[in-house]
Design a protein around this nucleic acid. Structure first.
Lengths: 176, 176
DNA sequence: GAAAACATTCACGTAAACGGAAATGATAAC
DNA sequence: GTTATCATTTCCGTTTACGTGAATGTTTTC
């Protein structure tokens, strides 16, 4: 079988890297370890079209790029921090993908009116995301205030108790 | 069978309600409708020990109090806004329950040193919750900044495009 | 007091988000 | 060049958070 050289990078980078900057590729286990997840999860994310690794070796091994890793980090933030479902995340990310496509088209596009339309669409999607995020933040802030208030009460109680215990040790004090 | 009177409230309220203030009790369907959820969900929450209705009728019907409803609202906020799992929520709420028990004991407790210990514990639990909330908020703020930055880019692009289109339509004019 | 409308408890079903094992192939190490 | 260590796909299992009846009991309404 025509096994290509994995040791010799025959087709390293055709991108705009100016000099000896070779873009790193990671195998699934390394990615899983680095980002505190599992191989199964990474394959699952690919299965549902959420994270498609940039490349594959001749043998079929997945190869993740730095962009893939950044994307995965974003996915994790959305999931763990914000509690979005993978379906919601996929929607968000696809919106982002569209945005990138728009950006690519943006360079090509000759008609300024068409460019403008693309921008407007990307803008709309971003504002949508912003709304969701800000709603969640408001909810969190509310909770934070509740907790802080409680903590304030405890502080007060502690203060009173200390005074009281002092008073018990040495009577002759006006009660609270 | 000794069916008690549901129409005549023989044992209305033995709590500290001073006058004709009778505390409302709601049946499962009303609660479900009001809080935008389902009866099944309410029963499930009870099943996992998350929301135990205050009372039951002789026949076994669940009766929810206003406190129960407030609790349910809190559960929903934790779940929908913050994306906590029901297990996490249960942990949080049980911490809160413990806090309330502490508070009840606090009234009874004669020993100030014991009171102090209880306060310290409640304080610890609240700080724990605060950490989780603030971590989530930091993540959200990060996302918000990302989105705002993108929106700024769009604004810039839009500005450029408008200028460009102006220039193409009517050359020889200063932009408006 | 009988029907309608609501409730109850099983009990099984389901979608999401993976876990884990089996059979097999690819790379790396020696 | 073979062995050990990765990887692959396939498929079935699991947990969470409920949905959806079925069989039955209770409360309300007439």
């Amino acid at each position: 079988m025509p096994a290509t050289s994995t040791t010799s990078p025959d087709q390293s980078d055709s991108s705009g890297a100016p000099a000896g900057e070779q873009r790193a590729k990671y195998r699934i286990e390394q990615v899983a370890e680095r980002l505190q997840t599992t191989k199964r999860t990474l394959r699952y994310y690919e299965e549902i079209g959420l994270l498609l690794p940039a490349e594959r070796t001749e043998g079929g091994y997945r190869l993740y790029s730095d962009e893939d890793i950044a994307r995965l980090e974003r996915i994790q933030r959305l999931k763990d921090l914000l509690g979005f479902s993978l379906a919601e995340i996929r929607a968000l990310m696809h919106a982002d993908d569209e945005r990138l496509l728009v950006r690519a088209a943006y360079q090509q596009e000759s008609d300024p009116a068409a460019k403008l339309k693309h921008i407007e669409e990307a803008d709309r999607l971003s504002r949508q995301q912003l709304t969701v995020v800000e709603r969640k933040m408001a909810g969190l802030e509310q909770m934070r205030q509740d907790i802080l208030q409680r903590l304030g009460h405890y502080e007060q109680h502690r203060h009173d108790l200390h005074a009281q215990m002092q008073g018990a040790a040495e009577p002759e004090q006006p009660a609270q």
